[in-house]
Amino acid sequence: MTDISKVYSGKVRDVYAVGDDKLLIVATDRISCFDFILPTLVPDKGKILTKISVFWFNYLKDIVENHLISADINEIYKVIPRNIAEDLDGRSMLVKKGKRVDIEVIIRGYLSGSAWKEYQKSNSVCGIKLPKGLKESEKLPEIIFTPSTKAPDGEHDINITEQEASKIAGKDVIKIIKEKSVAIYKKASEYASTKGIIIADTKFEYGIVDGKVILIDEIFTPDSSRFWDKEKYAPGKSQENFDKQFVRDYLIAINWNKQPPVPELPKDIVEKTKARYLEVQRRLCE
Score class of each variant (00 low, 15 high):
residue 185 Y to E: 01
residue 111 L to H: 05
residue 253 A to H: 15
residue 237 K to C: 08
residue 218 E to T: 05
residue 231 E to S: 15
residue 137 S to D: 11
residue 52 I to F: 00
residue 92 S to Y: 07
residue 250 Y to V: 05
residue 5 S to A: 13
residue 236 G to V: 07
residue 190 E to Y: 10
residue 57 F to E: 01
residue 123 N to D: 07
residue 85 A to Y: 10
residue 121 K to H: 11
residue 2 T to L: 09
residue 19 G to C: 08
residue 121 K to R: 11
residue 179 E to R: 12
residue 45 K to S: 10
residue 253 A to Q: 11
residue 211 G to S: 12
residue 109 G to Y: 05
residue 27 A to E: 05
residue 170 G to R: 08
residue 223 D to M: 06
residue 250 Y to R: 07
residue 43 P to R: 07
residue 225 S to Y: 12
residue 123 N to W: 03
residue 63 I to K: 04
residue 158 I to Y: 06
residue 52 I to L: 07
residue 245 Q to E: 15
residue 67 H to G: 00
residue 8 Y to N: 13
residue 265 L to R: 01
residue 141 P to E: 11
residue 277 Y to P: 00
residue 271 E to M: 10
residue 134 L to S: 03
residue 155 E to H: 11
residue 258 K to Y: 10
residue 34 F to R: 00
residue 225 S to C: 12
residue 7 V to T: 14
residue 196 G to I: 14
residue 192 A to P: 14
residue 71 A to Q: 08
residue 181 S to A: 10
residue 119 Y to C: 04
residue 159 N to E: 03
residue 277 Y to M: 09
residue 243 D to P: 02
residue 227 F to D: 02
residue 172 D to N: 14
residue 55 F to W: 07
residue 245 Q to Y: 14
residue 146 T to R: 04
residue 119 Y to D: 03
residue 141 P to Q: 06
residue 17 A to Y: 00
residue 55 F to E: 04
residue 98 G to E: 05
residue 88 L to M: 15
residue 260 P to E: 13
residue 8 Y to A: 09
residue 161 T to D: 07
residue 126 C to T: 15
residue 97 K to Y: 05
residue 120 Q to D: 02
residue 66 N to C: 08
residue 133 G to Q: 09
residue 259 Q to A: 14
residue 136 E to A: 11
residue 49 L to A: 06
residue 31 I to N: 00
residue 94 L to P: 01
residue 223 D to N: 09
residue 169 A to S: 12
residue 11 K to C: 11
residue 146 T to N: 07
residue 49 L to Q: 02
residue 78 K to Q: 15
residue 106 I to M: 12
residue 158 I to G: 04
residue 32 S to G: 04
residue 252 I to M: 03
residue 89 D to W: 07
residue 210 D to F: 09
residue 174 I to L: 03
residue 107 I to Q: 00
residue 52 I to W: 00
residue 213 V to Y: 00
residue 36 F to E: 07
residue 4 I to C: 10
residue 188 A to T: 09
residue 96 K to S: 06
residue 92 S to K: 02
residue 283 R to S: 04
residue 48 I to C: 10
residue 280 V to L: 06
residue 111 L to C: 05
residue 257 N to F: 11
residue 131 P to A: 06
residue 167 K to N: 11
residue 62 D to S: 14
residue 65 E to T: 11
residue 67 H to Y: 03
residue 92 S to N: 14
residue 215 L to M: 06
residue 126 C to P: 00
residue 168 I to Y: 07
residue 219 I to G: 00
residue 269 I to A: 04
residue 3 D to I: 14
residue 30 R to Y: 09
residue 84 I to C: 04
residue 272 K to S: 10
residue 210 D to H: 12
residue 280 V to K: 01
residue 284 L to F: 13
residue 180 K to P: 08
residue 133 G to E: 12
residue 25 I to V: 14
residue 235 P to C: 12
residue 103 I to D: 03
residue 212 K to A: 05
residue 199 I to W: 07
residue 229 D to V: 12
residue 182 V to G: 02
residue 84 I to Q: 02
residue 205 E to D: 06
residue 229 D to A: 10
residue 203 K to P: 09
residue 259 Q to Y: 03
residue 165 A to M: 11
residue 182 V to I: 15
residue 83 N to I: 02
residue 184 I to Y: 00
residue 141 P to V: 07
residue 183 A to F: 02
residue 3 D to Q: 13
residue 19 G to A: 14
residue 202 T to C: 02
residue 78 K to E: 15
residue 108 R to D: 01
residue 57 F to K: 01
residue 181 S to E: 12
residue 34 F to Y: 15
residue 203 K to D: 06
residue 219 I to Y: 01
residue 170 G to A: 11
residue 125 V to H: 03
residue 248 R to M: 06
